[in-house]
Design a binder for these strands. Structure first.
Length: 252
DNA sequence: GCCCAGGGAATCG
DNA sequence: CGATTCCATGGG
């Protein structure tokens, strides 16, 4: 619920339910016990431990971030946050839809995109494949109601299918080059590129700057992110983002 | 009606 | 270069 993925929702009972990696699952944490419904233990351990980054030592990361006193306070405010490792294409399209938009509406756009163009599974629709979006024209996205972003979605899928987007560069090249690779796509600028790198390619040094982060940085870190936080800038960003939305909030 | 939302392209100086 | 304007849509 912190705006890095858009297909999970929080139920009244306090459990999270949603679609990820082609399956629907429900998660509930009570004290230190995490219960999972909808998938087998084997599948959870093989695919969802990486997805939720449960294999990373967040205690150590939070300790390093807490080197700075302000950062320590922000981390302590929401200690459960983790940066997910989501599929690259889904992350790219989701954050193209995110531009000049709010989180609640982004979730609606993503859901309608899945309903219109994703494969129907039992009780849900999977995220559309690159192929299924690449054959479309922008007008075909009318029902999604994503406005001017329609042509960006199609361009991204077509460049992806044409092999014009190099996944190796995105995952392994220096951050500047990886960003440039994504910005070949019409409608992808620095912010969407950085979100794609951070949430869809596990580039934890990427630091997406949206309107919330800009506000928060001005108030909390006027002279920039602390040195001790820079190796995990993207993870720090996630704590700051959540803190900003709780404290400096204007809507929802 | 106005303002804003996990921005970016097009245009202009 | 930097600054401004427009872009669809929906909620507050």
């Amino acid at each position: 619920m912190c705006g890095q993925c858009f297909r999970f929702s929080l139920s009244e009972s306090g459990s999270f339910s949603g679609v990820a990696l082609g399956r629907r699952l429900t998660l509930k944490q009570e004290d230190d016990i995490l219960s999972v419904e909808g998938i087998s233990r084997e599948v959870f351990e093989r695919e969802y431990i990486p997805y939720f980054s449960l294999d990373m030592d967040y205690a150590a990361i939070k300790e390093q971030l807490s080197d700075d006193a302000t950062m320590k306070r922000i981390v302590a405010h929401s200690p459960g946050i983790r940066v997910l490792r989501q599929p690259l294409f889904e992350t790219l399209i989701s954050f193209i839809l995110s531009q000049n938009n709010n989180i609640k509406r982004i979730a609606g756009l993503v859901e309608r995109l899945c309903i219109c163009f994703g494969e129907k599974k039992n009780d849900f629709f999977d995220f559309p494949t690159p192929r299924s979006l690449a054959v479309l024209s922008p007008e075909h996205l009318g029902e999604v109601r994503c406005g001017f972003r329609d042509k960006y979605v199609v361009d991204a899928a077509q460049k992806w299918m044409a092999g014009r987007i190099d996944g190796d560069i995105i995952r392994h090249a220096p951050l500047y080059e990886a960003r440039q690779e994504l910005m070949k796509i019409h409608g992808v600028g620095p912010k969407v590129a950085d979100c794609t790198l951070l949430f869809g390619a596990a580039r934890f040094d990427a630091f997406p700057e949206d309107v919330w982060i800009k506000r928060a940085m001005k108030e909390l870190f006027p002279s920039g992110l602390p040195e001790s936080a820079k190796p995990y800038a993207g993870i720090a960003q996630q704590y700051i983002f959540h803190y900003a939305r709780q404290h400096l909030k204007r809507n929802q």
